[in-house]
Computed example of a mutant assay.
Amino acid sequence: MENSSGGFYRRISTGVKGLDKLIGGGLIPGRVYVVTGPPGSGKTTFGIQFLVEGAKNNEKGVYISLVDDSKTIIQDMLHYKFNLLSYLRSKKIVIYDLSSTITKGNTKPTWGEVLEELKRIILHENAKRVVIDSFTPLELMVRDPENKRREIVRLIKLLSTMDITALIITEMMESDKYTDDYYVASGVIVMHHFMRQFQMIRAIQILKMRGTAHDNNLKKIRFTENGIEVYNEAPW
């Protein structure tokens, strides 16, 4: 059941300090959420925090990278106090580098083939939390880029039936354009960074969150040794 605040739904924590309070106590499990923003805005950090939170609660997490290799992701996260290496060793978190698989050989895969491989990995790992990062550059790596809209919608609908909670990370290149995944996903979280009076401003925005009353305004974020922290106040 659902009420205006989303209070009747069971929730799972995002792992991002301060964010759960803004979305009714956390994410509704079993749904698909989009985390988007420009390069360097904190999307990968968000995704890892989400998986670490699950690992703390014995929920297996899978990070599927379509861009960076796993070594780079791990190195970038080691300056945070996530205890990530411990969770990787215990296989509570598994990182897949799908980019190397996609670029092997002389034949580009189709969107459908890539999405079938994503499904295979998730089922094989019996994951409860999944992060897919990022579909945006995949358009240059498949042989049927014109099918992106149809296949992304199909993937989100498929993930919604698999008893997992998933974050799909995308690159936001134009802030005034909404893509198809925005409409199909249960929630859209936007990471921002911009200059204001010669200072770098970082913010987060809950653009959409089904089943939850939420504030669409920009909220201040900070990057700390414990990862991203969200404050219920304007970023300036």
Rank of each mutant, 00 (worst) to 15 (best):
I169V: 15
K119T: 04
L167R: 04
T110V: 01
I189H: 04
S134C: 08
K104E: 14
T179H: 15
K157N: 12
L138G: 09
Y182M: 10
L115A: 02
A185L: 08
D180I: 15
Y183M: 11
V190G: 07
D180A: 15
L140W: 01
T170P: 10
K128S: 06
P137N: 06
R149I: 10
I156P: 06
L159N: 02
G112P: 06
Y182N: 15
V153M: 09
D163T: 01
Y183P: 03
S134K: 06
S134V: 07
M191K: 12
T136I: 05
I156T: 04
A127H: 05
S160W: 00
S160D: 05
L167A: 00
H192W: 14
L140K: 03
K177D: 10
T179V: 14
V130H: 05
A127T: 06
V142H: 09
I156W: 01
T161N: 13
P109W: 04
R196P: 01
D144V: 03
E117P: 02
A127G: 05
H192P: 12
I169L: 15
E125R: 03
K148N: 09
K157R: 13
L118H: 04
Y178A: 14
S186R: 14
N126C: 02
D163C: 08
K108Q: 12
K108P: 01
T103Y: 02
P145T: 04
L155Q: 08
V130D: 06
V131F: 09
M141G: 00
K148M: 10
H124M: 08
L140R: 04
V130F: 01
T179S: 12
D176P: 12
V114T: 11
I132H: 02
A127L: 05
E151L: 07
T136S: 09
I169C: 07
E116G: 01
E139V: 05
E113W: 04
A185M: 05
L140N: 03
V114W: 02
T161H: 12
V153R: 12
R154K: 11
H193I: 05
T110G: 00
F194A: 00
L115F: 14
T161C: 05
R150W: 00
E117A: 03
R196I: 07
A166H: 06
H124C: 07
L155S: 08
V131L: 03
L138D: 07
